[in-house]
């Protein structure tokens, strides 16, 4: 077991939780992430491995689903992000590569991203100040990439009052600032 201490994307030892009006902005650091891409001509073994491992069909374009231990997000043609608990799946890329073998390309993405969960009744009002996606119309299984204050982000809806924004990790500070500003605006 190594002895290096981790920092969160916001450069702290503990994840940040911000409460602004009826909105909570939570820095989520206990999830691991990998990209999973089907290789050319390998859709049959790929789907078989996916079914065995995830227990269902892969999410369609613009969709995601929450499962245990794996959640899946469609990110592009033949490409998904796979999310799992960091505590049990820190080495998620290796864990996925084994069952998929040559049928998939797998790349570790855990620390490439920062995830903020946005919670609260007015969360859609807040997103309307941030990004062009029709957040009000998004279903609870919808996930899409878009831009927030010049930062390319994945926006997922989890519930009527709960979204996740997943963005490249180095932008964490700027994005957090933008989220807090929007929450203050609508508070």
């Amino acid at each position: 077991m190594h002895d290096l201490a981790a920092l969160t994307p916001l450069s702290a030892t503990e994840p940040r939780i911000e409460r602004i009006g009826a909105i909570r902005i939570v820095e989520v650091t206990d999830r691991s992430l990998a990209s999973l891409t089907c290789r050319s001509g390998k859709s049959r073994p790929f789907e078989a491995a996916a079914k065995a491992l995830f227990g269902g069909a892969l999410p369609a374009p613009g969709a995601w689903f929450e499962g245990a231990p794996f959640s899946l997000i469609w990110t592009g043609p033949e490409q998904w992000f796979v999310e799992a608990s960091f505590a049990t799946h820190e080495d998620i890329a290796r864990i996925l590569k084994e069952p998929f073998g040559d049928a998939a390309s797998v790349t570790e993405q855990t620390d490439g991203w920062v995830r903020f969960d946005l919670e609260g009744t007015p969360v859609v009002d807040m997103l309307e100040r941030l990004c062009p996606v029709p957040s009000r119309r998004m279903k609870n299984d919808a996930a899409t990439r878009t831009m927030i204050e010049h930062v390319g982000c994945l926006v997922l809806r989890r519930a009527a009052d709960r979204f996740s924004v997943i963005a490249p990790r180095s932008f964490a500070g700027s994005l957090h600032h933008a989220l807090c500003a929007a929450a203050t605006s609508i508070a």
Partner: peptide
Amino acid sequence: PDMDVQIISTTEAWA
């Protein structure tokens, strides 16, 4: 379009 090659950025995943 038929090459078997997949690419993805990992710039920020690694220090």
